[in-house]
Design a protein around this nucleic acid. Structure first.
Lengths: 352, 352
DNA sequence: TATTAGCACTCAAGAGTAACGAGTGCTAAC
DNA sequence: GTTAGCACTCGTTACTCTTGAGTGCTAATA
């Protein structure tokens, strides 16, 4: 069966209406609102076709139709129009733009907060992974006799730090020495290149009596491994989901909150989205998500960039009945805004 | 009216039963289970008295009684017995004890996670405020030409760091100089002591051409101010609240999640608990909380200590119908466990 | 041949009703 | 002071009935 122009129009109307009302849409409603000059009976026939083709579903016989995941997918790919920003959106963004932020953590919070307020969904932001960059700085700062702060900076401007307790028996007077050594030996290496060979080289360079420090070197290389893998997830507007009838059911809501509670599963769900084209917004609708718990939710993510390179992800989570065009537009705006803030942070005074 | 032994026993039984069943407790139930050798009619009279005295409430005429906030308060102060750890509790703690943690952030996560798993409520942990300690280290680490990492360590072992963008026009080659200067001039000062005087001293010490750096000094002193005030809140087990019938109502649940969503309000609610005796567990029941949104919830907090000094807070949030004795016992265990982990972190290899 | 009017049918949601039962307060007897 | 007894209250549950939105199918129409 062919998906002709008329069917597309009807499908489009149904999805648009359903997105804004959350009520199954009946044929009479379409006949009245879609301005097709057709009777409800004709539309009924078309709707039956669309259902047969898999774009629509019927919750029960005497209800109207709702879009299936396939329906949403087609809508997102082919039908959905551009989103016209409301005055409220514009005001919100404009007032955000006026704020000058000079603290990195505040940038993150501001941006995820803004995205959740714009979209009314739950927004997230994932900090960059470190693995790609080359080490620019590695530094150990003594905190007390047993613990140090390890600071790692890559040439991409990504910084991570971690407070750790050193293995027993390390005299704190060696810390500066170790720090300098690490810096010298590891600078320029990509994080995923650091292997046994490089570590051994450091060990050798420690010279006589250096063996005492071997455990520290081992230890630090493990921590670097850890740091490399870690990313942080910031959530904002978690309670927004309660605004949607989809989550008025307490068990659905519980499931969702449980999912968000576990940052690991969130990271996993988000990183599953393929990176084919990292400039494009990635949309996963319902069952397109691998995780069980996401089968009734959609995920819209974008990679944000810095110096031409994708460094982290930003996006929103919500019900499959989502205002995709608005969300896509908002994420575009916000990721640009984020990139602008980051540019300022990283390159503003630089000749780079 | 006197709160005699019999009334106390009845009240105690009602509260214990209500805590475990969440159902209003009737006189017949007490007659059967409390082993008082009294008929339900007598108990009925006593319950009417207890209600008159304000310890009990009746949801409606034909229901049993439930404890009022005053009832819980009396229970917590006078009636509640010690909690006997279950095998499950013991196993959970024991397995946690075997894990050796050497990363500070993991300690925090582990502890709050453990507390929420033990209690089945939502647990939180607030990191120490910095204001009391004296500055031991202050260091600026260049990240790129425009941003630096500011690291602050107090003599109490509390560390905070923040990545910031420096004001325009600061050449990065001055960073080490500024860093050394700050360290020299500010070491030993308590954070809340740093005022205009100290800042001016640094400015003067910059010598000729130092004026160019004045904005940076000003800027950094503002950031220090910020750092001083900030604490972080870690939540764990947010979805636990869905296990309680109190929050089966979607609007109550929404309210609760909204509250937790806003870290500021959480911090505020928690820091409101007075610090009269910082060794004692602080319990705020229902209306004893200042915040509107907490009127139907209870907050149990403890200060955790390091080197004899209270440094942060740990605790749980849940419905007023809470298993107080279990929660108190668990928080005690966990704050000891946390202190042990922190001791290891801070003082293990030290002569301190 | 495509469209439409008409109609019987389905089914969720809401309103109304009745029965149930847990629990109470009060009274009178012990 | 305690208790048995009883009328009363009121939330909960189950059931029935009605309503109405929406459907699919058929036959008439353009």
């Amino acid at each position: 069966m062919e998906l002709n122009e008329r069917k597309r129009k009807i499908l489009n109307t149904i999805i648009n209406e359903y997105i804004s009302t959350a009520e199954p849409i009946g044929s009479r409603h379409i006949a009245k609102h879609a301005d097709l000059g057709l009777s409800s009976a004709t539309i009924r026939n078309e709707m039956a076709d669309l259902e047969e083709m898999g774009y629509l579903e019927q919750p029960h016989t005497s209800a109207g139709r709702i879009p299936s995941d396939k329906g949403y997918r087609f809508y997102v790919n082919e039908l959905m129009g551009g989103y016209e920003a409301t005055q409220q959106d514009i005001d919100l963004l404009a007032s955000a733009m006026t704020v000058k932020i000079n603290q990195f953590d505040k940038v993150i919070k501001q941006v995820s907060m803004l995205l959740s307020r714009l979209t009314n969904y739950t927004a997230f932001l994932i900090t960059p992974e470190m693995k790609h960059g080359a080490i620019k700085t590695i530094e150990l700062i003594p905190i007390d006799n047993s613990s140090v702060l390890i600071v790692l900076v890559t040439n991409e401007g990504i910084m991570r730090n971690k407070r750790v307790v050193l293995p027993q028996g390390v005299d704190s007077e060696y810390i500066p020495k170790i720090s300098a050594m690490l810096k010298e030996k590891l600078s320029g290496f990509s994080l995923d290149e650091i292997g046994v060979k490089e570590i051994n080289e450091i060990k050798n360079a420690l010279g006589e009596n250096g063996e005492l420090l071997f455990p520290v070197i081992e230890f630090i290389s493990e921590i670097i491994d850890d740091i490399q893998k870690e990313t942080e997830v910031y959530l904002s507007g978690v309670s927004n989901i309660f605004n949607f009838p989809e989550y008025r059911d307490i068990d659905r809501a519980k499931e969702f909150i449980e999912f968000l509670d576990d940052k690991n599963s969130v990271t996993k769900a988000i990183s599953n989205s393929q990176e084919d084209d990292d400039r494009v917004i990635n949309i996963k609708i319902g069952k397109e998500n691998d995780m069980d718990i996401m089968q009734n939710s959609s995920l819209v993510t974008a990679n944000y960039h810095l110096g031409g390179r994708s460094v982290g992800k930003i996006g929103i989570i919500g019900p499959t009945r989502m205002n995709y065009s608005k969300v896509v537009a908002n994420i575009n705006q916000i990721s640009k805004y984020l990139e602008k803030l980051l540019e300022e942070m990283y390159f503003d005074n630089n000749g780079e």
